[in-house]
Each structure stands twice: as C-alpha cells, then as structure tokens.
Design a protein around this nucleic acid. Structure first.
Lengths: 252, 252
DNA sequence: CATAGCAAACATATTTTCTGTTCGAATCTC
DNA sequence: GAGATTCGAACAGAAAATATGTTTGCTATG
C-alpha cells in the first residue's frame, strides 16, 4: 500500500511544524481532507500524534519518551544491523534475557531461528518469538505497560530473580561513561537492573544518539556492562571513555 | 474470502475419511489440484491435518487432544454463549484468573471491555486482552506450550502462588461428578490446580460433551467447584449429580 | 529410472482495501 | 444562539492485494 508513505509524510510534517491543519495536510499530501482525517484517526490511535478539531499536533517536544509505534518505524535498518551483530555474539544453546524496546525487539527477531533459551521482557518480543521451533521460550510474569508492552512489577522481578542467564541484552534511553545506563521509566529501570543482576554477561545495545543522552532513571554504571553494540557514527570520545571503563565496544 | 469454506470442507472430508488424496479433494471441492495443495500446506502448518505425498490424513483418532486451531473454529457460537453467561457472573472490580483453552479464550474476549484485573493463563488470551483500556492485565510467567500457548511450569505456579483471585475460570477436557475435573496434559493440570488454589470462587466452563468424558489427569474433584457453566443439551443425570455435590450448574 | 506428485512462475480473476464525494449532524466562535 | 466550520457515515469508483488455474521443469519414491 502506498498509504504508508503518506502516513510517514504526515507524521514528519506534523513533527516538524508542531501542529498542522487538516486542510494544510491535504494540500501537502495531494489527497482529500477525508483521507487525511482517516489517516489522522489511525495515527492518533497508535499514539503517533494527537488529534484536535481541525488538525493534529505532534506528541513529541514534551520531554517524554516518544511512543513505541513511532520508534518502531524509525531507523529500522540501523537496528537490524545492531541486532545482527548481537546475534553473532550469542552462542547456540545459551540462555538469554532480552529487554523491552525497539532495538531489543530487532535482536529478538534476529534470534528467532536459533537454538536458544530466551526470556523476552516485552510482549512484542514474545509475539516475535512464539512459534519458533528450535527456541525454548520462557515468559516472565508482570504487568505489560500500554503500547510498550514491557513487563514490569514484582512478578517480573521475581521471575528474573529465580533464574540465571548466560547473557542479558539490555536496551536503554541513554548511555554514557559518566552517567551510566539510564532509562525514562522507573519501573523499566528496576527490571533492567534485575535482568543485569541475573546474567553472567551483559550486552547493551544503543544507537549513536543514545551515547550522548541521559535519561531520568539510573539503571547501572557503565562499568557493569561487558559489551556495548552501537553504530559506526558513535562519538569517538564517548566510545573511548567506555573502553577506558573496560567495556568492549562494537560499532557496526 | 470464500477459501475459508473450502478449508472447512477439506478438514471435514479428511476427518471423515481418515485420509484423502489430493486428486479426490480437488474433485470434491471443485477446484484444481494446485489449489488443494496450497490449502493443504496452509492447514498442515496450523496442525489441522497431516500432509503426506499424494494427500493428507487427519490428525485425530489418536486419543490425543485435537490441536488448538481445530478446536478454535469448532462450536464458536456455543462457546460465546457460555462466555457471555460467565461474564454476567463476574462483578466489576474483581480479580480474575482465566485458564487456557478455547472456551476460556471466549470468556477472555467477553471480559475485554470490563473494568477488571485479569491474569490469563495462555498467550492467546493475552493477545485478546492487550490494549483493553479499562482492564488491568497481569501476566504469569511460564513456558508457552506450542499451539495451545498455555503457560506452564514452575514460573507459572510461582506467579499463581503469589496472588489471590476473586474468581478462577477453569476449562477442562472432561468433567463428571464421579471422576472430577480432568485434563489431557499433566503440566496443564498442575496449573489448573494452582489457579483453583489461589481463587475464592471457581467457575468451570464445559460444553455438554465434556460432561460425559474423562481425561488422563485429575485436576480436582467436582466438589471443589463452586459453579459450572454448560450448555442446555447437557445430560440431566450428570447435571443432577453435580448439583448433589453442591455445585451450582448453569445451562445456557 | 520411470512416474506420480510437487513447486515455481506467470496470467487472470476475484476480493478486499483505499479514496473521494456528498450530505446531515456535531462542535466551535463570536 | 446564529453562522461557520469540521466531522463522520454512506456510497461508488479506483487501486491494490490476494486467490486461482495453467504451464513447466524438478524431485522423490518405489
């Protein structure tokens, strides 16, 4: 369908302008207002923008984490590259816990056809792994956060505390040598911490942009990580600082 | 699509005959052999029948439980009627644990728009409940059984043991006053037992046919149930026997 | 190694989805 | 509360996706 391009165009235009009228969007996309309205309804449902009478505004610019659906379509190729690199670092037969988030979801997809024991920490990853024939899928308990579907809460912590994994794949919102691995959501941060505590080896995944960002909740100091997989446009200074802490950094 | 009718026709024909050749099926459905082959591939993937060179055979007649995909399309209307009756018995605000299986999946769907706390014991039910705005969804841990996606194992038992529910909705493979509530799968039976143990009230759901059937694993004696919801064609003798044990029986 | 069965490739048919228009109802502005 | 704008349901036509059947060359099985 070609409508997906128009959706992207609308999201980008709204994001750039902050807010736009239906009429303006109809003109820019070269479609009718009715089509734009239908698109906006759809996009608003996914939390990609906010609808108001006459137009729509961006949900960003609020300091919050952008919604899952938005991040899921952003930088797909980059995430797949990182995921492939992580998959190379995992040996057959390992027990792996995979964090929530879009980058970790890419990792889950990359591991789906492998012979592994996997515990995903989000229902998105679960759905990606269900039905994989060689894979032993282990679900943690917990409450799925809307949209994100990240499992959190005492049930999740208890599930993690009862197990010992070979490797934890951890996503993040920010990661610097100075401020450590950070997340927006406090409940998520607690789970990441528990996952790190129950794994022998910790691999963090972080696109370059995250290496110059710090979020609210501290998960762990950077030295707690064994490896970081990032992109080749990661800032040298930060990469060197991480290496100085004994973290293996892989740029792909 | 009209192909779904043909699929059903193929499944029924194969089930009745035990096995059938591609040529025979092509003639019966009035389509080409190529179409039949494509259908068989699809159906075999879902575990609805078994493919062999030249034809397909039924997966039933093995004493095992028929595959989930097969039961899911069987007696849909009956299951929805039972589910609606169960939904009436649940008050807003309750905490409910919902067992795996197709009948319980119907119950989950019927409860999706209610204001409740729900813990589903299968990923099918999870998917039906995710995104429900008023519902507080609680996931148990565990290993999803292929196809069924029923969560089982020590993680599931631990999740249940940590909680107390107002009501448990339990499905079954067989239920009689004499032999109690029984299941095909041993791991499932253990989970059902744990769910019953952590709920104040236990409602069993069972289409009429199950009231004259007994499966391998005993879950609980019939007296452990508070209510049974069944269909109006349930055998009177069995219904009376259940009532004599103090079980409230509702026929819909 | 012969033969029935199979799957890829393609053209066609069918269904589904998408889009734009119209029109009455709902909502905002002054 | 009047006037204007926006909205959404309904429908018809357009576009896209899917399903089907035929051909052709390959594969497995006895």
């Amino acid at each position: 369908m070609a409508s997906v391009d128009r959706h992207r165009q609308i999201i980008d235009a709204v994001r750039r302008a902050g807010q736009l009228s239906v009429a303006e969007l109809a003109e820019r996309t070269g479609t009718s207002e009715m089509t734009v309205r239908r698109d906006l309804e759809l996009l608003a449902e996914q939390g990609l923008l906010e609808r108001y009478r006459g137009g729509a505004r961006s949900v960003l610019l609020r300091g919050e984490e952008p919604p899952f659906a938005l991040r899921a379509t952003d930088g797909v190729e980059v995430k797949e590259r990182i995921a492939a690199a992580v998959a190379e670092m995992i040996a057959d037969g390992e027990a792996v816990v995979i964090d929530a988030g879009t980058t970790c979801l890419a990792v889950a997809r990359a591991l789906a056809r492998r012979r592994l024991t996997v515990m995903p920490l989000s229902l998105h990853a679960t759905n990606a792994l269900v039905g994989a024939p060689q894979l032993r899928l282990l679900m943690p308990g917990g409450e799925p956060r809307p949209g994100e579907l990240a499992l959190t809460g005492p049930l999740t912590e208890a599930s993690l505390a009862a197990l010992r994994f070979d490797t934890a794949i951890i996503g993040c919102c920010g990661l610097t040598a100075a401020n450590g691995l950070t997340a927006y959501d406090l409940a998520d941060a607690a789970i990441k911490r528990a996952a790190i505590a129950s794994a022998h080896r910790v691999i963090a995944v972080a696109e370059a942009a995250k290496l110059s960002r710090t979020a609210l909740a501290l998960v762990a100091p950077a030295a707690a990580l064994h490896a970081v997989v990032t992109t080749d446009d990661a800032p040298d200074a930060e990469v060197d600082a991480l290496k100085a802490l004994g973290v293996a950094v892989r740029r792909v």
